[in-house]
Amino acid sequence: MGFTFKAFHISDEGLGMPVSTDGVLLGAWAPLDGAQKVLDLGAGSGLLSLMAAQRSNAQICAIEIDSAAARVCRDNFAASPWADRLKVIEADATRANALAGEVFTHILCNPPYFETGPLSAKPGRAQARHTGSLGFDALCTLLARHLSPGGSASLILPIESEPSFMRALTDCPLGVTQRVEVSTVEGKAPRRLLYALGHHKEGTPHCDTLAIRDTNGEYTARMRTLTQDFYLKL
């Protein structure tokens, strides 16, 4: 099982963590210009790390709490063209010594966001999808702790999670610098939000919109431009 991009193959080996549009969007959109040291927070099978490796010359650290996912992530890294710039830490990122106080110029996170609803029967999948494993307060604390003063963090959330996330940001030194509303089809209400965060608490974020498909079901020109360096066929 897996998914093949132009430059690498992602295997999930039964983890129940297939390549998602959310992950591809975040990995293609994240503002990585000038990134030297990247953290992939809750890496899963390593998709975001591999996309960051393709888009930059940064050293990339992936941290993953689930043992099975961490093993698959290592295998995916080893099979990629950028194995020398990728490493995996199997640990709970919320533990104070997990990253030994390291700071990063960019942090990527496709965080768990299902605050209610049934848990998956697969423990790793449940951890990856529900905020019980990494709530927004803990996430914001981690981002603030490990983001360098001039760095940025990127994440994607369902639009209904925005109030909870913004409440968590209230007591955090980080602020939103970019906000993109993502709709599945042009003219439809947005379903996802792409955020960039930085050490800029005040000021108005740059706001934008993105539609994945047009009303004929084809990928929009913007979506094609954003992701064309990854997909074999789009």
Rank of each mutant, 00 (worst) to 15 (best):
L99N: 04
A100M: 01
E102P: 02
V103S: 15
F104N: 11
T105S: 15
T105F: 07
H106R: 06
H106G: 07
I107Y: 11
I107E: 09
L108A: 06
C109R: 02
C109F: 02
P112E: 03
Y113H: 06
Y113R: 01
F114H: 07
F114K: 06
F114P: 02
F114Q: 13
E115K: 13
E115N: 04
T116N: 13
P118Q: 10
L119F: 07
L119T: 04
L119C: 05
A121V: 10
A121I: 06
K122W: 00
K122V: 13
K122C: 04
P123G: 09
P123K: 07
G124N: 01
R125K: 06
R125E: 08
A126K: 03
A126S: 14
Q127H: 04
A128D: 01
A128M: 01
A128L: 00
A128S: 01
T131Y: 01
L134N: 01
F136P: 04
D137M: 00
A138Q: 01
C140A: 15
T141I: 06
L142K: 03
L142Y: 04
L143R: 08
L143I: 11
A144T: 13
A144S: 15
R145I: 12
R145K: 15
R145T: 15
H146M: 08
S148N: 08
P149W: 12
P149E: 14
P149D: 14
G150L: 04
S152P: 00
S152T: 13
A153R: 09
A153P: 12
A153E: 12
S154N: 04
I156D: 10
L157F: 07
P158H: 09
I159G: 03
I159S: 13
I159N: 08
E162F: 07
E162V: 14
P163E: 12
P163D: 13
P163G: 10
P163L: 08
S164F: 12
M166T: 12
A168Q: 10
A168I: 13
A168H: 07
T170F: 07
T170H: 11
D171W: 08
D171L: 08
C172R: 12
C172H: 09
P173W: 13
P173L: 08
